[in-house]
Design a protein around this nucleic acid. Structure first.
Lengths: 123, 123, 123, 123
DNA sequence: GTGGTCTAGACCACA
DNA sequence: GTGGTCTAGACCACA
């Protein structure tokens, strides 16, 4: 189930994208599984259908989910990681930012790796 | 020197904040060092003074820099890491997001730690 | 045999129309050949009968196939190309679009003609 | 100037995308040129800003245009053709469709190449 | 002023 | 019922 945090500064459509990706990673959603339709999910979490649609479109673009005409939307059967220099640099930027932030709240390198290990255990 | 990428999706004021924090962490800027004034930096990097001002205000709020009335702006003398649950959770959220993204571009846990180590070497 | 790609953004009824036209052009289907009934084709390719029906109606309207009441549906005996300014303009629009797309994926004019020649060989 | 054909079955945002790509190809728009803002173009062609925005976002995704924070939207400085198997196959599908259509309106291979040459002259 | 997000609601093609 | 397109309009962060 998707929980939206309306207090979060993270856009709703991004929260949806991340949650679905997370659920796939955790195996809660498996390749071939049917996702709720835009309207279904919309009424389930009382978010405007356009917002759901935006999230689904983005996930489709990333080839994480696929729309089967007349059948609905499904978790992609064989997702292949799409790696390119741009995405790699983006990720490095994010990591760098975290490392800086960590330092400023007093979290050392070892602490950070420890935290990462903890989070990896969830998956 | 601060390089602004106006093509980036990251807000300019955030780029400035991050760059200054990074320079402090790397020792390029040391406690007590004088920062250029808002106007100076504004003309140096041809960015709207309001944007510079916003970055400085934010850095001041975080106690990373200090304004000495009539003298200018300086790197704080004794920065003390401010840790609280909220900031910790925020950081964990960011890490979780990175871990998910990493997976979707085909970067394994070991790769990720490797990349983190690389970035830590810069500091 | 008609293969439907339900992942495609192309509507199913259009895929059917195109495939039948293609088969006629290739000589796999010849004038006078009997086509499967709507129900037959529907169960053959597990597609909603309404969708098959829509494709057949469209092909009939184009005079590519003919319905003989009580006997079934057949490839038209003497198809006469129907040319008019509107169809011509439509085709030109499509070609223009392809030329633009080709350029943006780095396909030159010569490449494009080469590709066209290749495809013509299939027919 | 962008002319929208509201009678066309082609979505408005696609018409905008194609027109801008066409103008760049023809040299009417050059790398670095500023595009009208979403609101400007919106009032120029009396189309809802959301629709313009959708077209711009798509063009940005394709790296045909780029948004410079606080400065506006510009034709990308150095567009690099993005080629991949998927796009190639898509183009081939389109060409195949045109070849079939051409045949059914009585346009021969030579005619088709002739028409293509004509259109290439516009660019 | 600039684009980004979100809602509400309408209409349509497709299956 | 399903997603796609479009409009109108609000609110916000950023520069």
């Amino acid at each position: 189930m998707i929980k939206i945090d309306s207090r979060s500064s993270k856009p709703i459509y991004e929260q949806i994208i991340e949650k679905i990706k997370e659920d796939i990673l955790k195996g809660i959603l498996k390749p071939g599984d049917k996702l709720p339709s835009v309207r279904e999910l919309s009424s389930m979490i009382t978010i405007n259908p356009n917002t759901i649609s935006k999230a689904y479109k983005e996930l489709e673009r990333m080839k994480v989910i696929e729309v089967m005409r007349g059948k609905g939307t499904f978790v992609a059967q064989n997702y292949k990681p799409v790696m390119n220099e741009e995405k790699m640099n983006e990720m490095k930027e994010h990591i760098k930012k975290i490392i800086i932030e960590a330092h400023y709240i007093g979290v050392s390198k070892d602490d950070l790796i420890e935290i990462m290990n903890e989070i990896y255990k969830e998956f």
